[in-house]
Design a protein around this nucleic acid. Structure first.
Lengths: 351, 351
DNA sequence: TAGCAAAGATGAATCGTTTCAGGCACGCCG
DNA sequence: CGGCGTGCCTGAAACGATTCATCTTTGCTA
């Protein structure tokens, strides 16, 4: 692999000059510049970014930590982050933690050794205050948290107002005439799951509706738990007429449970959920869902992170960006008396 | 950020000794080793992998180029690759090309500058022989192609037998009593799409079945084209009774088209398709599909790549790994006379 | 044509590791 | 007691870029 020295020799100039041609740092006479460019072509020279990183003390690489890229929500987040990063010449080093805090610790350590310029983090749930994140910040490495906030830590973030979104969503179920409304929560170790539960409780309380304890079930954001808990709730003698399911994977599980029991949505149970990937619109019933701008999570987060990196203002008061959600109303939340017979398009309201 | 020199000073030893402790290259007396480890702790020292990479002339990083990580198939591939890479201490630098050759060129150039040790590539379709890949290989950088093979290039690969899989799939449709069978192909710039078409033609030919030209429609692997072409085919006066759809996204489009026209699958049209992500099993009708081991694509590919890197045998005769597919038979391909009335489980046969 | 400013070119030092030739100390053997 | 082998340590060179103090060239003016 050719080095800058070889290019310099072939072009008959000094290494400094070649460097100036490549980086544009200082001006180089036209004729020499051409000679250098020709030499670069001829040797098929690709500047060694490792050496450059060492000298400049920055790698133009971002660490990206998510729980699982296989989840359509996070793959969109990653995609958005990549786009924003690339646009400014940064590359993305991606990791999955499957929400294991231990793995997150390891990855963070690796990223420090790799000297990434900053880190985009979808933090794993944790019982204790995540000291590894504090340490990373203390070491002067900018971190932006996406989607979830680690408890008790001052850090930049891009989030969504889960409480308000869940509340609006449950209100919609109420407006459809439902009085007995249940919820399947995500893992309550996650702030997002807690917030959605809170939003549900608020909406119910405001409408003076009772919450039967048996209608509140604790899931883990995975399809299987939606299936299990859905079955359980549906087999209660006093079962709810509507269910707020805290994410879409679990909603699919509930649909499967309904199907198993020979029941139908929305005839026997209205459903509203969170997350709204394009793919689900193909299937019946179309799900009423809170749309989160997944792509923007990543894009905005990367932009914020890069801004922090380049302005060198890490440690100043954290910036919190709130992204808007949209409640997409579709078939799955139609109640018996309001369900249209025709297959029409459905309205959409936005927050 | 602490350096090895500072660690050495704090521990009262030379930098060479610290390096030996960290890498385990040479033996260090017990007491000194402990002093060094304590100093590392105290300074919270993280070895600078950039400097190490420069010295060792390898980065322990892999480039990963896919068309779109948002596609569930590719997100699984990436996940598998990450797992295999991490297990051997390699990191993944991920890029999306959206199947644009130009972007692929750019990314390849960036990866050379970054001095990645090897590249996992889902190659973009191309009219001409992709010289940029040849060049990369000539530069001595190992490349493993996943899923698709670039035409006319000797390169390691992990693929699936698309011809055989499509053929088996269409044979199944025939066995179900269908005689008029159509196909929606992917973009024929992609080898995989061509191969699936070929498999379809083989199966039809072997069964002495006519292929009406109007039943063969050229899509682009995206949902929208499935919808459009599905509508067109269904509105032919002599429409097929079954459709082989070359990937799952387009199959969803066809389902939407059916729905729009007030038709049902499989009553009015049997469907069999390619790719079989877990999520689709939730919905009715469950799709008969050729399952591809997406995760294994990535995992196997990364293993092969790392083996090539570490044995330094690039340029030797290429290794081609063929992964097995499985035909998952479900509701969508049941024909009128064979469709069971009960909701039972469906058989699965494997290739 | 001499003088001078501005523009351009040079090359050594530097970034933080690894590696290796050489030095030191110790113990064992004859 | 001298010689030698062994085990540990040390420190300088090298990896390939950037940068900057310093030197050279160029072009302009009087």
């Amino acid at each position: 692999m050719a080095t800058i020295k070889e290019v310099a020799r072939l072009a008959g100039v000094s290494v400094g000059t070649v460097s100036n041609v490549i980086t544009g740092t200082a001006s180089v006479a036209k004729r020499r510049k051409e000679r250098v460019l020709r030499a670069i072509q001829e040797l098929n020279y690709h500047p060694n970014y490792v050496a450059r990183s060492l000298k400049l003390q920055r790698t133009k690489m971002l660490g990206m930590i998510v729980s699982d890229i296989t989840n359509p929500f996070f793959s969109q987040v990653v995609r958005g982050a990549e786009e924003a990063a690339l646009k400014q010449g940064y590359l993305l080093l991606t990791f999955n933690t499957d929400d294991h805090e231990e793995r997150e610790r390891q990855v963070l350590s690796v990223l420090r050794s790799r000297r990434v310029d900053g880190i985009l983090l979808v933090v794993a749930p944790s019982k204790t205050k995540p000291t590894h994140i504090v340490e990373t910040l203390k070491a002067g490495i900018p971190v932006v948290c996406l989607d979830r906030l680690p408890p008790g830590i001052a850090v930049d973030s891009v989030t969504v107002d889960n409480v308000a979104a869940a509340r609006e969503c449950v209100r919609h179920l109420i407006a459809q005439g439902n009085q007995k409304i249940g919820i399947i929560t995500g893992s309550l170790a996650l702030a997002t799951a807690q917030q959605r539960l809170l939003g549900y409780e608020k909406a119910m309380h405001e409408a003076n509706l009772d919450v039967d304890k048996r209608w509140v079930r604790r899931g883990d954001f995975r399809s299987e738990s939606g299936y299990q808990l859905g079955r359980e709730i549906l087999q209660e003698e006093n079962r709810p007429t509507a269910l707020f399911v805290s994410n879409n994977l679990m909603a699919y599980g509930v649909l499967r449970a309904l199907d198993d029991l020979g029941l139908q949505c929305p005839r026997d149970l209205a459903i509203a959920t969170f997350d709204d990937p394009a793919i689900t619109q193909v299937f019946r019933p179309r799900l009423t869902a809170v749309f989160q701008p997944a792509y923007s999570f990543g894009y905005t987060g990367a932009e914020l992170l890069i801004q922090r990196i380049e302005s060198k203002t890490t440690g100043e008061s954290p910036i919190s960006i709130r992204l808007p959600t949209e409640l997409h109303i579709r078939e799955s939340s139609a109640t018996i008396f309001s369900r249209p017979e025709a297959r029409g398009e459905w309205e959409t309201s936005s927050t």
